[in-house]
Design a binder for these strands. Sequence first.
DNA 1: TGGGGCCCTTGACGGCCATCAACAAAAACT
DNA 2: AGTTTTTGTTGATGGCCGTCAAGGGCCCCA
Lengths: 242, 242
Amino acid sequence: MAQQNAGNRTPNLSCRDCPTLRAAQWRVLTQAEVERLDRAKRTAAYSPGEPLFQQNSPCEGIHCFASGSVALRKTDGHGNSVLINLISEGSTIGYRCYYNSQHHAEEAEVLEPSTICLVPNNVLGELLAANPSLGEVFSQQMAKDLREMEQALLESVTLPVRGRVARLLRLLMDRFGEANETGEIVLRLPFGRQEMAELLGIQRETVTRTLNALQSDGVLAHTGRTLIVEDLDRLLDELEAE
Amino acid sequence: MAQQNAGNRTPNLSCRDCPTLRAAQWRVLTQAEVERLDRAKRTAAYSPGEPLFQQNSPCEGIHCFASGSVALRKTDGHGNSVLINLISEGSTIGYRCYYNSQHHAEEAEVLEPSTICLVPNNVLGELLAANPSLGEVFSQQMAKDLREMEQALLESVTLPVRGRVARLLRLLMDRFGEANETGEIVLRLPFGRQEMAELLGIQRETVTRTLNALQSDGVLAHTGRTLIVEDLDRLLDELEAE
DNA sequence: TGGGGCCCTTGACGGCCATCAACAAAAACT
DNA sequence: AGTTTTTGTTGATGGCCGTCAAGGGCCCCA
């Protein structure tokens, strides 16, 4: 267990200055409500590898990302797991749990050094009661999540491993990819093969072999945790199975 | 194509007498709002095999089930498809589509003779604006749906075909199963092997072989569209992979 | 009564991927 | 430094399930 200072308190960020606030969910809040949010939230810093919350733990509130990213994963009793979603700055998680006030059905594992604010359940309840638009925003978000989950379900049943690896790579490119001087996309993964395999529900060895196959097909090059996507179009073709 | 009278209008049922209304979503409505709902909804009858709505069709509103059942399925460009959910009387579908006001991401195929009411989008909007509790009910429903989808995603990646067949059978038992005089559960399927295979994203032949295997293991007996689950405990054991 | 679809079944074969095993490489610990 | 532990790679093997091909039961219709 390579965990360090789990969720250390940091000097609270002000919600007024938070770029996350202007985007996405919280945009509908009034100035007074932002103040209320600002006083109630708790900010904490997390290191890669630690859990933001664990499966079956009670939900304390909604987590709002100032910076960083986590992987949402669900695990069964045999140690098998799947990637549910990748969450990064500007996003919010925990609303599913809030609405049926149960326990987390999945684990949130921190991938990069992250700064994340927690809005406690009771404060969230106040805000929702005071401002119905906020509830609508969360509804829209959940409807979108459902749509993406349906797509993921379809692809996980139909696509072979090669396609599912490609799907994960595209997701990662959106968050961790950086353009190169030669036009290639450099992808510095926040995790190794082992975890990549777990996220896909496949074996470590299969990840190695699949990446080798993609490399000899000229789609990408890989050494350790660094991937270089050479032929983006070809990679996207892997996914056009729709 | 065995389709008949697609969505024939029937004499409108009154919402006041509808048992569906008292359960689930609409319970939070006031008497006046029920009247509003009653005047606006349109009732139609559907026969097995016809679509309630098709993938990529625009969403007209929320469908409320007075009786019958449909399968929600999503199909890709290669003809592969997966079962997203089974919906039957007392339930409602279409809220996902309402909240992001796009097109249906999946098809709803009628399984049994069904009577289904349509609540148009604009009326739904009025009700949601007038009664915030209704929005909360839908939020809770979507949060629950998300939870179930995550479980389905995990199982579709983890479980072998045998387990996924068992999962489908348990779902079907909840809706179509009837207890026997000898304590067995008789399951009269509303569809054949072909469709069962499509719902699971597998092949017809594999369904046959899997059911045969379950039969020789003493879990069930099958002839045509009739299944008899002999050893319920054993079937449930198939699923305790959590 | 026979014929033509349609769906289901059964068998044979092959490919994909999990599993096992051995080793290399890197990281963590003493 | 050396040792142990974790992680990554490579090869061999086998099982599961998709695919292809052939045959059987059932219904509809002439």
